[in-house]
Design a protein around this nucleic acid. Structure first.
Lengths: 201, 201
DNA sequence: TCCGACATGTAATGGGTTACATGATTTT
DNA sequence: AAAATCATGTAACCCATTACATGTCGGA
């Protein structure tokens, strides 16, 4: 299970389940997501297996707080995972499946709207990652040169996200352009279907 | 559930569970994957809900064969799905998480090997999609112009895959270049760690 | 004769989400 | 006084995977 390994990775410094949820949101939002209801049992399982240990600590607010830390066995397990082959999950892209079948609707305007939503979605995500990159650049104008090894890998992951999203957006634009050509050809050329006449010269 | 809708989408022509599994592999391999052990119960559920109906048919080989077909309600349900907003699943990319944490290993050669595997993986997938595109081009030199609406959407989905994969590969190359610069700087510059000396002039 | 393709399923398990349940403390 | 934040968990459910179970038919 990857969540277990990711938790081990995040536990470089001791953290509570609640903390880890925040780390997911702050640092890994473009890579992985996890709910508290999944994190808590997983931490317990890791502790039973001796990969982490825990101690009680004062809560910053509210009641008790349980801090988890990597054990030697845990760090070793993490290294095994990191040294292994890349784990490719077969992506299930429901939105692409929707597009694949959308010809069924015979409604190119719907396709156009759909592509608009998709583009907006990815543009928003890209903006978020770009903001992170701008922060790095502002902090060090030589970025990404001279990054410590740790940060270099974080940088790689960030760039992965940015490159993917940029490609998605370009693909949206390519597709919209193809669609637009269709729609223009249809409105100016032979109109088999009687519809509203537009752009009369 | 998206699998249900995808099955409805595939059931333009009547098909058996076995057929549908093949359709997944032939047409949707870059978008979705499903096992027979998931397809069979899902078809039964769809039938109970009246979205498909089934009849027995002669097997091409072996024993009986159950052919499923869309009902009106099924087609309507499909259209609802297709008309709705894009369904973005939050991707869980274990391999990116691995890379994110890989600084922990302090072993840039491992990172290099990792990126090599990743690149090879995506290059193979891209080759498969390129082959499909070449078939379309061979069949019609004007491709993708003048594609029927149905095929246009399939084309969009294909291009989505190709663009994503190409971007991944470019990202790999960018990352490898950055890593290479690191390694060269390290081997020619101050070598804090005593290692094997290479490239003596 | 045995292998591979055709064909259909069930059971156990795993991984994840949603909803539910609780309670302290700080900020508005 | 109410809302947000800190903090921890459980239970039910859903989707998917892996392993298991069964049987026919055609070709090598």
């Amino acid at each position: 299970m990857s969540l277990e390994h990711i938790l081990l990775g995040l536990l470089r410094e001791p953290a509570s389940g609640y903390d880890l949820k925040k780390l997911f949101e702050e640092r890994l939002s473009h890579i992985w997501r996890a709910e508290l209801s999944q994190i808590y049992p997983t931490l317990k399982r890791l502790e039973r297996r001796g990969l982490v240990d825990s101690r009680e600590a004062a809560a910053r607010r509210g009641s008790g707080r349980r801090l988890y830390a990597l054990t030697k066995a845990g760090r070793q397990e993490l290294h095994v995972w990191l040294s292994g082959p890349p784990q490719f999950a077969d992506e299930r892209m429901a939105w692409v499946a929707q597009l694949y079948f959308m010809g069924e609707l015979e409604d190119l305007d719907q396709t156009m709207r759909f592509l608009g939503s998709v583009r907006a979605h990815f543009a928003a995500k890209l903006a978020a990652l770009s903001a992170i990159q701008r922060m790095w650049t502002a902090a060090d104008p030589r970025y990404p040169r001279d990054l410590p090894v740790e940060d270099l890998h974080v940088h790689f992951a960030l760039r992965k996200g940015m490159c993917s999203l940029a490609a998605h957006i370009e693909w949206c634009d390519e597709s919209v352009a193809e669609l637009t050509a269709r729609l223009e050809a249809r409105s100016s050329g032979t109109s088999r279907e009687p519809g509203a006449a537009e752009e009369a010269p």
